[in-house]
Design a protein around this nucleic acid. Structure first.
Lengths: 191, 191
DNA sequence: CCTGTTAGGAACCAATCGGTCTAGTAAACT
DNA sequence: AGTTTACTAGACCGATTGGTTCCTAACAGG
């Protein structure tokens, strides 16, 4: 009945996500997006409505591609919880080793956002992360004897540490210093 | 010989710092600055040259007014080091209690910057903070028996945790959750 | 008082911002 | 074949961006 779309929506969102990841929401202009996505203005606005709507979809994609795997790893019941927490930090550190200088789109957006819709979305993700840390801690032999309050505290602290790590991983990538800092926190969890 | 300036340079820089603190570098427009500083375009450009130069001076002012006191506190030899570290985190948490929703200009800038000059300046401040944490740890009875490498690790970790805390303190101020997270890290240092 | 210097205000600048719209064309369906 | 839709390319929009320039008023020294 009609001509089908010539670009994959999913693919376009992924490309947009990478542009936003690199330059931030404010730092990303329409020409940036068009070049990175390989489509034209008309197609972008027909498919996504506005820059902000596209950004919200890019955040969804980031959650799906990068947050969900981490949360799943933490929530999964295989191995003890401490090893799973270490693995999540290690994934971030290995990214830095591989030259990832963009940090984390979620963390970057927490720091940049002043829009209610955007703030709500990243805060929801942040809470998911803390919940997942808590679940992993519950299944960590060393920490499992903590009471509920202490578990909350430890989980909140892991989120703080994780966000700080990834913010500091932007730009210059002094990977060894970052790893040292994480090591101090993770030592007690490493089996 | 000439008409004297009608506004205080120091005062203007402080006002600019507060505007940048609230909206970030990219999010701050010239009209924002002019209104916040109470001067006009001509005066601003004559006195500061450019928006970026003004921002670098605002960063200097932030370092002077907010970073230096923290570093001095950490480096000062009064009391044991652990209490001094706790005091630095407490200062940030008390700010949140008092309704400070702008986070920390230094940490926000780390997350936002993509300019070499700006990045260099905030990284220098970040290193000062880590060095100060290390000094305080050295004078903390519990930690003073650590070897040099372990001290580096603990200091780097405190910086990570501090940055994460202050990034998460932007916007919504769920102060209790922030305090819980910090408490988990500081418990061992609290005498 | 006079002259040189500067502040201040506002007009002005080119460039870019996010966003809309139009043409003409290409592809799918009945 | 005819209809419908999405494609591309580009002009175009008003608003805003950071930055400049000019004119006038205020103040200093001689």
């Amino acid at each position: 009945m009609a001509r089908p779309r010539e670009f994959e929506l999913d693919d376009a969102v992924t490309k947009a996500m990478n542009v936003f990841w690199q330059h931030g929401y404010r730092g990303t202009s329409l020409p940036h997006l068009l070049e990175g996505m390989g489509i034209t203005r008309g197609s972008l606005y027909k498919a996504f409505g506005s820059k902000k709507d596209l950004f919200l979809r890019a955040l969804d994609r980031y959650e799906q591609d990068y947050v969900d795997p981490g949360v799943d790893l933490l929530m999964g019941a295989d191995g003890d919880g401490g090893k799973r927490i270490v693995a999540v930090f290690d994934t971030a550190l290995r990214g830095v080793d591989c030259g990832e200088t963009r940090g984390c789109l979620l963390c970057n957006t927490i720091a940049e956002a002043d829009d209610g819709d955007i703030t709500a979305q990243v805060q929801r993700m942040e809470e998911r992360l803390t919940t997942a840390f808590r679940k992993a801690l519950q299944e960590e032999p060393i920490a499992s004897d903590l009471d509920a309050d202490s578990l909350d505290e430890e989980a909140a602290n892991l989120t703080q540490n994780y966000v700080g790590l990834r913010i500091l991983a932007r730009g210059e990538n002094d990977a060894t210093a970052l790893r040292k800092g994480a090591e101090a926190r993770l030592r007690q969890l490493r089996g």
